[in-house]
Structures are given as C-alpha cells and as structure tokens.
Simulated assay, not measured.
Amino acid sequence: MAVHWFPGHMHKALKEIKEALSQVDILIEVLDARIPYSSENPEIAKIRGDKPCLKILNKADLADPEMTAKWQAHLEAERGVKTFTTSTDDTAKTKQIIELIRKTCAQKDASVKTINAMIMGIPNVGKSTLINILADRVIAKTGNEPAVTKNQQRINLGSGIVLFDTPGVLWPKLENPNTGYRLAASGAVKDTAMEYDDVGFYAADYLIKAYPEMMKERFKIDQLPDTEIEFLELAAAKRGALRAGGRVNLHKICEVLINELRSGKLGRITLETPDMLIEEKKEMAEVAAKKISDKDKRKQKFKDGSLTPDKKDRKEKREEKRAEQSARMKKRT
C-alpha cells in the first residue's frame, strides 16, 4: 500500500535529528507494541552508529503479550539495544525509564556531566504522553492523531538527564508493502492518506487467520468464512452496516473494524510477528534482485539495440567499412 504522506516538517525533523545526534548519549525509540517492525524507523538504524538504544514498546496493553515477549527477544538480539514495555495507564512503570537511562549510561551518570537522551518515534505512537509522564508535568502536546509535535525541544527531566524531543517522523519510502497497511491500521498516518476499504480488507484477512476466536466472539459469528470479503459481509450484517435494500456498506464495516482494532475492543492483537518479518524480508530481497536483473537486461537490450536481422547486417557492414577507413588512414600517416 502506498502511503502518500511525508510532509515537509518530517524532512526537516529528520535533518535536525542527524545534526543533533553528536550531542546525544542514548537514543530512545518509541515503538507501537502491535507493530514493532513497521513502527521502527529504518533511518534511525542508519544514523545510530554505536550509540545505545532503548526501544520502548508502547501500547503494550493493546498488544498480544506472547508476541510482545517474542519481539523483545528479537529486538534485543541487535547489539546495543534494550527493550521496555509501557502503556499509557501505567504511570509508575513508565517512570522506570529514567532509571534505565541512568543505568545504560552508567559511566556518565557517575560523573557530574548531564546525560543527553534523544526520544523519537513515528506519529501517534504515544511519545508525547510518555514524555509528560517522565517530566511529571505537561510539556508535550498530546492528541489521538498523527503529527501533533512539530518542533524539536529540550526537556530537563531532573536526575541529571536532558531529553531531546523530536517530531514524529515517518520515512520517505516504505520498502515493505505490508508496512503501509499496518501503519494505517494502527493510526500512524492520517486517515486522509489511506483508503479505509484497502486497509480494512488487509486487516480482515490477517485477523480471521491470526485471531479467529476473537473475531468470532466480537462479531457474534459461529463459523468464520475463508475469505476477508465473506467475513466483512457477515460482520456488516451483524453490525447493521448496510445500505438501502440490504446491500453491504463495505466502507462502513471497514471503518468499524479499524476503529475497534485501534481502540483494543477486538482484544489484545499484534499485527506482525518476527517470523513474518523474516519471510517478508526474504520476499523483499527476491523482488529487489529481480529489479536489478530486469534493469541489467534493459541496459543490455539498449546496448545491443532492438535490431531486426536486416538492420543488424547493415550495422555490421557500416562498422566494417569504418574499420577499413580507419586502417587506411593509419597507413597514410
């Protein structure tokens, strides 16, 4: 799915993050526990270098706890990465992040120097709410929609820690086509940048396979169908998402499904697993290899020219004639 949303302020924010990175001791990346891979900004991995990174899996109360544990193990396999789970209603646990920062930067914590931490995350991941809890006061504007924070700011958390806050940043190109659907389903992009029907079909297809019992219970369906369209039709009938004459209103039922997924009414759901990630990366590598191969073939075809046998014969004769002329010129000199 193509998400056409990379506003100018995001480009500016990414540039400012790169410029401020040299002053930072530790990076804190806030992820959505329901989509740890899709909410992880690949640009951060490119510029992080060897700086320690604390990945916060926020909204863990909405995610599948078994999958969250698997994702933590997967993420911590990367050098210098530690993970921590939080939810917006557990203030006491969120405040433990301060101690984690000090422990990770123990050498600097033991000195009189300030620990500089930079916090970042995709839009609508709950970063601003987390900052307000850590600062114990309202610092960052919050809102249940993407792109609330627009400018970088520095916040003194006390305990010798200064937090560099950054705007929610997406990245210009989504390499994995599934990432766009998951970002849209979780609310990381504005609804105006997505098609509810497309996202609804994607979510329905995944949910009836990964969480069939939850879907049956939530939509009061005894036997789930095999396809997403059949499921949506049944769900629409159960919820009254119908047009005149009893026709299914697909847009309406997709909207219901997405909103209930985001709010947690469907249950604790994770939209991707580490195993899925491995398989999708393999598929992406195959697609990339095919693109390179096709490009090389086009280059070779252009180099050879799309000549008919007759044109090819005439070309060879012209080249022979030029070679003869060149040889005669050399003899004269």
Rank of each mutant, 00 (worst) to 15 (best):
K15G: 04
A20S: 14
A20H: 07
L27T: 03
E29Y: 03
R34Q: 11
I35T: 06
Y37P: 10
S38H: 00
N41D: 03
A45W: 05
K46V: 11
I47R: 01
R48G: 06
D50R: 13
L62G: 01
K70I: 00
E76R: 03
T83G: 08
D89C: 10
T91M: 04
L100D: 03
T104S: 05
V112Y: 10
N116I: 08
K127A: 04
L130V: 04
L130W: 00
D136Y: 03
V138C: 07
N144V: 04
N144E: 05
N151W: 07
R154C: 13
I155F: 14
E175P: 09
T179A: 02
V189Q: 03
V189R: 03
T192C: 13
M194E: 02
E195C: 14
D198N: 09
A210Q: 04
E217W: 08
P225H: 03
E233F: 06
L234V: 09
A235F: 03
A236I: 07
N249M: 10
N249D: 15
H251V: 02
V256C: 12
N259S: 15
E260D: 15
R262H: 07
L266C: 13
L266P: 13
L266D: 12
R268Y: 11
L271D: 05
I278C: 08
I278S: 14
E279M: 13
K281D: 07
D294V: 13
Q300G: 15
K301W: 15
D304M: 11
K311N: 09
D313T: 11
K315S: 15
E319P: 08
R322Y: 07
E324G: 05
